[in-house]
Design a protein around this nucleic acid. Structure first.
Lengths: 114, 114
DNA sequence: TCAATTGTAAAGTGGATGCTTAACTATTGC
DNA sequence: GCAATAGTTAAGCATCCACTTTACAATTGA
């Protein structure tokens, strides 16, 4: 119910980049190494690392290194935080529009010519 | 189903700022003028205008001017686009985790000691 | 009519973002 | 051991972003 504003900043910021969304998309289909994440992206490994770091500090992704391979996966709680902020706003204005609709319906019943 | 990447960039970018989220939050409770949007925000009207412009080009908000007052409202289709991108990703990994759970359950039935 | 209100436009500024390249470390397979 | 693989760190750079200030325009109410 209570949203940490700073964390929402980071999450939406993280999702605002096509490369990072691609990475999230890839990870939603299963865990992957850094180079696997980099493979479809037209940029250096170093750049991918920087995107990954942002995804981690935003809480959308976590990773751990075993041997020389770092394996990344989705952090389930992450996306739901962003999603729920949006859906709470949406339900607020949907309820409001409903009440407005009711009001207008009632109006036209009482004063059909107005 | 098909997401315009550039528009998603703009939407998530728009939501990545606390001032703009406040504006969306305010508008989800009903339409408002530019100065009403500005009132709780600790910045110049000019700055609020610039945030508003971003919200408009991202498709989250629309506005129209009557007399000297510009009235702003939520664009219903806007938020749902961002929301649905997230929820599609979520359902992908949720399905995957389900399958993984099934697999592990089957494993432990066949090889209870492994 | 004229002053207050409401909004716009333009230019400037400091700091964040999204890369790059280069140099380096740790692990693995032969 | 040693070359290839996988990742990490740091520095640098162009561009974008979130404001500000200043000046201006249109509308309204007394």
């Amino acid at each position: 119910m209570f949203h940490d504003s700073a964390q929402l900043d980071l999450m939406f910021q993280a999702l605002a980049d096509p490369a990072r969304r691609m990475m999230v998309e890839r990870l939603s289909r299963g865990s992957a190494s850094v180079s696997e994440l980099a493979e479809p992206l037209d940029m250096s490994l170093s750049a991918v690392m920087q995107h990954l770091q942002l995804l981690e500090t935003s809480g959308l992704v976590r990773s751990e290194k075993v041997g020389r391979v770092r394996t990344c996966r989705i952090e389930p709680k992450g996306l739901s935080m962003a999603e729920s902020w949006i859906s709470e706003r949406r339900s607020t204005w949907e309820r409001r529009l409903d009440r407005l609709g009711d009001f207008l319906a009632a109006q036209s019943k009482t004063n059909p010519k107005e």
